[in-house]
């Protein structure tokens, strides 16, 4: 790059000299002189770095300033406020959405708590109902058992009295049968059986047997 610049500089000097020569040579007529100026202009343009051609600076600077002013005005008046508003809108939307999400989360949590509470309530209620039913059933059962017990006891007592009556009657009839049998036996063997003696003997025997 640097050597390129150097060469450019040397060529520039040469060409400028050439231009001057042309200028000198054609300094006669007005027509020719104009041509010479044009030629000189072309020579400077073609020589060296175009960047260092000062004759174009005014033009470049003028159009640059125009461009910058226009660009600045359009950007600062139209583009920047628009982009800024879009960015703040987006920020707002994001913040709003996040807040809404937080709210929904809170609501969901509340709903969950309410659900849990309802569940617990229902469970507790179910338990009380079960306990109530159990107690009621127990009471009914107890009552039935007591009733049955009483009935059983009454029946048992009744049976016992009946058994006792039967036994007593059995004792009496057994003694009667035994007296009759004894008296008959005594009579058969030719003895004299009076009821009192037989009865006493029987009583004596039966004391041990019956009972």
């Amino acid at each position: 790059m640097f050597s390129l610049l150097q060469e450019a500089a040397t060529t520039a000097v040469e060409t400028t000299e050439g231009a001057i020569v042309i200028d000198d040579a054609t300094a006669h007529g007005a027509d020719a002189a104009a041509h010479g100026v044009e030629g000189a202009g072309y020579a400077t343009e073609a020589a060296g770095l175009p960047q260092l051609d000062i004759t174009t600076f005014g033009n470049q600077i003028f159009w640059l300033v125009v461009t910058l002013v226009v660009l600045y005005l359009v950007l600062s008046r139209v583009a920047l406020p628009r982009i800024a508003s879009v960015l703040s809108d987006r920020q707002g939307a994001i913040t709003g959405d996040l807040m809404a999400a937080e709210e929904f989360k809170l609501k969901a949590r509340e709903a969950e708590a309410a659900y849990d509470k309802a569940l617990a309530d229902a469970r507790a209620q179910a338990q009380t109902i079960v306990a109530q039913n159990r107690a009621q059933i127990q009471a009914q059962l107890d009552e039935a058992i007591a009733k049955a017990d009483a009935e059983i006891a009454a029946r048992t007592a009744e049976s016992e009295t009946r058994i006792r009556a039967v036994r007593a009657s059995a004792d009496v009839s057994a003694r009667d049968v035994a007296q009759d049998v004894t008296a008959e036996l005594v009579r058969t063997f030719g003895g004299q059986a009076d009821d009192a003696t037989v009865g006493a003997a029987l009583d004596g025997r039966m004391k041990g047997a019956v009972q």
């Binding site: 202009g41 004759t55 174009t56 005014g58 033009n59 470049q60 003028f62 159009w63 640059l64």
Partner: peptide, 12 residues
């Protein structure tokens, strides 16, 4: 032609 300060050029 020559480049005056107002001439529309390739720079413009």
């Amino acid at each position: 032609g020559p480049v005056a300060w107002y001439t529309p050029t390739n720079v413009t």
